[in-house]
Amino acid sequence: MKIEVLSEFSYLIRFPGDKTCLPEPTKLGIAAHLLRDAFAEDWVEVVPVFADLLVTLSARSFSEGADPEAIISACLEKLERQDEVLVEPRLIEVPACYDEEFAEDLPEIAEQGGMSIEQAVRLHSELTYKVYAMGFCAGFAYMGDVPEPLRQPRRSSPRTKIPVGSVAIADFMTAVYPLAMPGGWHIIGRCPVPLFTPDDQDNPTLLRAGDQVRFHPIDKDEFYRLKAKWRN
């Protein structure tokens, strides 16, 4: 791991890895946990994204005599020794309805992969995904790795509005849209459960970096039942 001074109050910690060999997101998750603990009141942002961790600190952490870089190094040493409490990744089941009404791009994805729609659904939902990063918008989780036959590059022309809850894939990643947003991902289903609940300020997102996620296929009746339940 390499610590880089990024700006006045920020560091970038680079973990070894690249697109073909990503570091375990739980490892970055534990690092983030150790850093927040060590800096207590003085961390402003600790953001793990794929192979990099951004640490932004308060002005106070740089006052005379303070050595934030040494604190970061100590956290990374602890991480390597793994003698701290290891955080078990949470396994979260996300219901997803793959009905044709919600899955505009599923027929094409299945065809490109040389399989039936049923096979494509099974393939997408039988795997456990890892949350590599949160970003793009509130509650949006970048999850991987999508099995090879389902991988397709982003659409050449993005849609101007992707409906709330859309389950989508692009390249090796899958995600659920927490808000209606423009986007270039392929839509293969819809999730009835909110991914972002701003009223719950202590726990506003269903998913977090480091989580493990499985998609649980549901039919339309179940979709509307869950949707109604969450509305109340």
Binding site: L12, K19, F50, Y142
Partner: peptide, 8 residues
């Protein structure tokens, strides 16, 4: 293409 990174 590169991997997405956190943006300061």
């Amino acid at each position: 293409d590169i991997l997405s990174k956190p943006v300061a």
